[in-house]
Design a binder for these strands. Structure first.
Lengths: 152, 152
DNA sequence: ACTAAATGCAAGTATGATGATGGCATTAAC
DNA sequence: GTTAATGCCATCATCATACTTGCATTTAGT
């Protein structure tokens, strides 16, 4: 099964930030609707995001979810690492019997390759902030509106 | 569940190349032993590798598996793409209801991020050939032997 | 011919992380 | 007190991956 935690968390954070900019109160129910899932599911992903100081929430009526710090200071790497725990992008086979030159050293070799791959992706994600991402989303929205009105 | 096809196929190919260099006949059973699985499982991964002209095999007694072309002309990217089909490294959520600015454009936005990540990893894998990898494995083997004898 | 040793392949089982829901106690505004 | 929100736990669902069993086929050697 493919891991959807990162894209889901990303949409949640971007949704919160956009709501904030638009002066709209954001709840887990609204986020859930925009994802097509239940509010409970959203709250589950909100747990690590809150723990890492990315978002924060208030209880009770008129409660909801807000950004916990500036979107300029949150990168996609922060979000990725926050919700995927220690899951590696590439994983070596566990429990390889050390019987030959290949099997005895493949683990160490593969670890090097996997680390390099992961570092490349994480660095790329670290170069994109939530603020940048929202800007890009809004740009895409403008183009979408442009395309839609061109049809008429 | 984590995808082990790439590390498994990698060990298979490196094992075949090492056997070839050492002048030893290689069979799916030997590869299976070095992986701790059945020969049938190895053969299953051999199917795409054969299809892509990376390895080739001969039937019957004294049959076995060989490299189909020079290890200098096979990159880790070739192996990765061969065995992982069209699986993406990062995947967007499917079926997002387009209800707001975020949900309507997140798909396109995420696709850009995912493509960039995948391109980075594939380019890195393309820079490593099977020949290079075997050299590195043998270097690790020397270090391993060095460490082992230093203990005595 | 016969046997041994190999591949090719189809069918099926297992598993476990991920995906997702429901329910309920708690909190806070009005 | 009612309403509307979060926090969190227990649970179910599913599905891609992991792997085995089993057997037909092919080929080499005697």
């Amino acid at each position: 099964m493919i891991d959807l935690r990162f894209p889901t968390a990303l949409q949640i954070v971007l949704g919160i930030q956009i709501a904030e900019e638009d002066g709209v109160r954001c709840t887990s129910q609204k986020l859930a609707d925009s994802l097509g899932v239940t509010a409970s599911f959203v709250r589950r992903l909100l747990v690590p995001l809150t723990r890492d100081g990315i978002v924060e929430s208030s209880l009770g009526k008129r409660g909801g979810v807000r950004m916990a710090r500036s979107p300029k200071n949150i990168t996609l790497r922060d979000i990725y690492c926050c919700v995927t725990d220690d899951k590696r992008l590439l994983t070596a086979r566990p429990d390889i019997p050390c019987q030959c030159v290949a099997s005895a050293n493949i683990g160490e070799f593969f670890e090097g390759v996997a680390s390099e791959a992961e570092a490349l992706v994480l660095d790329m994600l670290a170069r994109r902030t939530v603020a940048d991402s929202v800007t890009e989303i809004r740009k895409l929205e403008q183009m979408r509106i442009g395309r839609a009105s061109a049809v008429n």
